[in-house]
Design a protein around this nucleic acid. Structure first.
Lengths: 118, 118
DNA sequence: TCCTTATTTCGATTATTCTCGAAATGTCGT
DNA sequence: ACGACATTTCGAGAATAATCGAAATAAGGA
């Protein structure tokens, strides 16, 4: 991940509305949420929400998939990890204690389950 | 640290030039760098650099101190830690492995030294 | 096919950010 | 006090981003 990708990602998160959207999607995990639900919860005009979702999409922070009539948006945890990694490496001094790993709660539990079971 | 402070910090870092400036300051640690040196290294018109430094300053990511005729800018590691903490907590899912701690290399070495000596 | 729902694209407007030369400010040495 | 240096403030123009209604597209059901 290079500097300009990070700039794009940070720019996407550097907006009150988009940060709210992103946090909401993080909370939901891989299941994500349809655009309409997000618009309703945040009380946004549909076209405004689309504008912001495109920013997040172009920055690579969220994914989009169609489920019949709805378009589902979800956090791209790998991308967020890459951003965190860059910031930790380049913007946090050279004496960082450890690197955080971002992943949804359920995936975590599943992973723990797998480990325990194995 | 609340959402709008984070938005301000991310906005400050979400610019090619400012990210470069900030990385340069992180590298330098608490000693920081005078504006003139930064301007020269990045080949920027002085007034443009000032504009960007103000953004970083207002976002609370850097500190400013005067050393005779020069104004020295330095990373505020505590502020950067707060931003990383927010992102880890709110934008990384609820199954984060650990939280990174940002601090300059020399402070780290000094801390290690202190520990070893103690 | 036609209607309804979900969402996006278009387009026009307003607001914000960026850039950088010229002038002002603060500080030191003489 | 004056001149030189480091940096900021001012101001105006150019570029980019945000807002959102209205029209267009996509998908499912009658």
């Amino acid at each position: 991940m290079d500097g300009s990708q990070v700039v794009a990602a940070l720019g996407a998160l550097a907006h009150e509305t988009r940060l709210r959207v992103f946090r909401m999607l993080v909370e939901r995990g891989p299941a994500g949420l349809p655009a309409g639900v997000i618009a309703e919860k945040l009380d946004l005009p549909p076209s405004s929400l689309t504008f912001h979702l495109q920013q997040l999409l172009h920055a690579g922070l969220v994914t989009q998939r169609r489920l019949s009539r709805q378009l589902i948006y979800a956090t791209d945890f790998a991308a967020m990890n890459a951003v965190m990694g860059y910031l930790t490496e380049n913007c946090c001094g050279s004496d960082v204690v450890c690197v955080p790993v971002c992943r949804p709660a359920k995936a975590g539990k599943a992973a723990a389950q797998r480990k325990r079971t194995a």
